[in-house]
């Protein structure tokens, strides 16, 4: 029977540094993504093959979405961040389907790390586009009384971002494991397929919400 471990599983340690199973899986995911991108880059051509066409269509769709949400900013400034979130979270969500691999996003540390990055990027782009004063001012407008509420809202929404992803992925893994233990070998397949769909949707939601947060931080109040 498959055991579901919610806490990080240390695999090795180098001095005080503990390397968990989640991190190793993420490295594998990163290696896969890097290899795939390297493979695609080698075959990039002006007259694109089918694979390149698909990739270009996906990136253009991303660009279009970023443009729609952030019409005043060069989309290619924000796109790498959001795109990397989509790709990394998407592939990580699917990694758990492969036997022997743990879904990195089913670890709260991973989702919190991504959420923290999302939070940091929101501030980074906010300050970059509005300046430090302008950005700080929006926390105290229309009144300084609202500052704590703004801070609480930002903290909670970041936490919600992390917990939503973590909860969805963990529940998917748990459901598959429980049904595998109760019903047998082939029954969890539909649930696994559902888990794949949910994983992709969650990656999309995470990226879109990050985009919306960045847009909220960059837009001037009127």
């Amino acid at each position: 029977m498959k055991t579901i471990v919610i806490s990080p599983e240390p695999l090795m340690s180098v001095g005080p540094v503990i390397i968990t199973r989640t991190v190793v899986t993420t490295w594998l995911v990163m290696a896969f993504i890097t290899l795939a991108c390297w493979f695609v880059k080698r075959r990039l051509a002006l007259k694109p093959p089918v694979l390149q066409e698909g990739l270009e269509a996906a990136l253009e769709a991303m660009e279009k979405m970023v443009k729609e949400v952030l019409p005043d900013i060069d989309p290619w400034l924000v796109m790498p961040v959001v795109g990397t979130l989509w790709i990394l979270i998407g592939v990580s969500n699917l990694a758990g389907v492969i036997p022997g691999l743990k879904t990195p996003t089913a670890d709260i540390n991973t989702t919190f790390a991504f959420a923290a990055l999302s939070y940091s990027m929101t501030h980074y782009f906010g300050i970059k586009t509005r300046g430090l004063k302008g950005y700080v001012r929006h926390y105290v407008s229309p009144s300084w009384v609202l500052l704590p509420f703004h801070l609480i809202a930002e903290t909670t929404r970041t936490m919600a971002l992390a917990v939503r992803l973590f909860g969805n992925m963990l529940s998917g893994e748990m459901t598959a494991a429980i049904i595998l233990g109760v019903a047998g070998l082939l029954v969890p397949i539909p649930f696994t397929l559902l888990h794949i769909v949910i994983g992709l949707i969650q990656a999309y939601i995470f990226g879109v919400l990050t985009l919306v947060f960045i847009a909220g931080g960059t837009q001037n109040e009127t």
């Binding site: 540094v17 991190v23 919190f112």
Partner: peptide, 16 residues
């Protein structure tokens, strides 16, 4: 909460 995992994942994201 595991600090190292959190840090590694953040670094992983930036590296990627």
């Amino acid at each position: 909460f595991d600090f190292w995992t959190f840090s590694f994942q953040a670094i992983n994201f930036i590296v990627l």
